[in-house]
Design a protein around this nucleic acid. Structure first.
Lengths: 109, 109
DNA sequence: CCGCGGTACTGGGTGTTGCTATGTACCGGT
DNA sequence: ACCGGTACATAGCAACACCCAGTACCGCGG
């Protein structure tokens, strides 16, 4: 992926992470790995950690430190009520965008 | 629209403008007005002008100055070959994103 | 036993982008 | 003569994803 793609991720990536956490709690390293498997091959590791810090500071997630068998303790994030609200809001905005762009793609205006 | 929305526009807005120019040439003031009509109510005027300057510098559009009946001359932008290529690339990335997010929304992973 | 690779998190600095705010300029109607 | 709508330009700001380097913990092979 190139320059344009990384710009397009802005804002969207947060929604993606919230959506992942909505299905079940997860920690940074795991999220990065999963996203890379799912096609975001160039995703930088530091990006996810920074994003997690941000959404934690905004109170969208709860954090629990869990010891790992294979390295330093994991910070497991889980979506709380405010996070679910934010996710709903994200889907609303996302749907709006998708709808607008579909119209543009079909050349309706 | 709020904070999240403006972040989500990043990168996408360029694709939107390219798509608009693909259907027919247009000038900045006109593009801003059209986008506002189509739901991007909070779109700042300066944003479009800055964006047009950028895509011009990257050689994606051709520019022609056309006198207006109601004000200063318009700078009419039209998509050139390179711009069409860039637009195709944009749609490819966009489709990828839409596909990923659809999967997340349907809770498939 | 010691380095090495995999796991896991952290932090500083950079570039791109959209927003805010302000300024310039042209025109017609009152 | 002024005001509002048309039309463009730009300097400064904040947010975000990136790059890069560092820290730390573990098990394994030499």
């Amino acid at each position: 992926m190139g320059r344009q793609d990384t710009e397009m991720l802005k804002g969207v990536l947060e929604g993606i992470v919230l959506a992942i956490l909505a299905s079940r709690p997860a920690y940074g390293y795991e999220i990065t790995a999963r996203l890379r498997e799912q096609g975001f091959t160039d995703l930088a590791e530091g990006t996810i950690y920074a994003l997690l810090v941000r959404i934690e500071q905004r109170g969208l997630v709860d954090v629990e430190k869990v010891p790992s068998e294979k390295g330093p303790p994991r910070k497991v994030y889980s979506l709380n009520a405010q996070g679910r609200e934010s996710l709903t809001e994200f889907w609303r905005t996302w749907s709006f965008l998708v709808e607008r762009l579909e119209r543009l793609h079909d050349g309706k205006e």
